[in-house]
Amino acid sequence: MSLDKKQKNKIIRIAGHVGALIPLALLAYDYYFGLFSPDFIREITLRTGKAAIVLLVLSLAITPLNTLFGWKVLYPLRRIFGVYAFMYVALHLTIFVYLDYGLSWPLIREAIFEKRYALVGFAAFLILLPLAVTSTRWAMKKMGKKWTTLHKWVYLAAILAVLHYILLVKNAYTQPFIFAVILGVLLTLRIGPIKQWVIRQRRNWGKGKKSRAPMNS
């Protein structure tokens, strides 16, 4: 029994929501059972930040995955992951401003404008904000071509998010660099000629496989 398009779409959507909510569920679990480390604010700041960056990169991976493997069926995940990424960004910023800095504006100002990592992170938030607001189908229809132009800013937001991570770590850059490399590959696969070339290769390869198949049987 094979699933029709609608069923597949539904399953992927549900899986997307569930997956994106796992970090939040884990936070709730650890909170409820008192499993946080002694520096609770640092831990939840880092965990919401990590969830945001992972989801942002995942949402940018969907189109390249289609380019590489023809997985168009994953397309709904672009918006789902993108919106959840923003949710974690908003949580992350709220924790920073409210829980950590207790709404003490002089300290927040100092942090945001004098610490490179905070400035870069805050810029990423400012870019993502209008994208999240216009993430509805209604806005998409209403804005038409402008919507596509506006949402291209997500590339810059992702670059700033990874830069924010790189600037933040003390000295062992391995993890943030992995994100940087993945993001670099994903963005490269979006460059017109490269994308077309990859698609041509995939189609040729697919044809070759199909034509050989009967001879093997």
Partner: peptide, 19 residues
């Protein structure tokens, strides 16, 4: 004396909320 990454003007005392 500021540090490029962490605010040195305030700190989080482990076991307390806020700064």
């Amino acid at each position: 004396v500021p540090h490029p990454r962490w605010s040195q003007a305030s700190e989080r005392r482990i076991g307390e909320l806020g700064r």
